[in-house]
């Protein structure tokens, strides 16, 4: 194989944009969540549990977690692109990170609906 640096993958804009949009979603969620928490009459197990059983909180949390994992994927891939020079190793790490994030997503949903 020729030893030549190849560039020109023609992607990157969507990821860059997605990172910004997911950051906004996470910031808004954080504010809403803190507001919801502050509006609890008192913070004890009963109220805490009741709050997590609200569908709105659950679905908003799913949106937050999806944003978090997309954001994390783009960020971690950026780090690998900078520091991992071997393309084969980089691809293997990408696959591991994607698998881990998909597992985290499934696990998070299990937790959210298990409350």
């Amino acid at each position: 194989m020729v030893k030549r640096e190849v560039v020109g993958a023609h992607y990157g804009l969507r990821d860059w944009l997605a990172q910004r949009i997911t950051a906004i979603i996470m910031a808004v969620y954080t504010l809403l969540f803190l507001t919801a928490l502050a509006s609890l009459p008192q913070i004890d197990y009963g109220h805490w549990k009741a709050m997590w059983q609200l569908p709105l909180i659950r679905y908003m949390s799913v949106l937050f977690l999806v944003s978090l994992f997309i954001h994390a994927w783009i960020g971690v891939r950026n780090i690998f692109m900078d520091y991992i020079k071997d393309a084969g190793l980089r691809l293997a790490l990408y696959v591991l990170v994607i698998l881990a994030l998909v597992c985290y997503m499934a696990w998070s949903i299990q937790i959210l609906w298990g409350i």
């Binding site: 560039v7 993958a9 023609h10 992607y11 990157g12 804009l13 692109m81």
Partner: peptide, 14 residues
Amino acid sequence: LDNLEDPYRLFRCH
């Protein structure tokens, strides 16, 4: 723009 739309050429800038 085609020349720059690339994860390395442009989007290494953070």
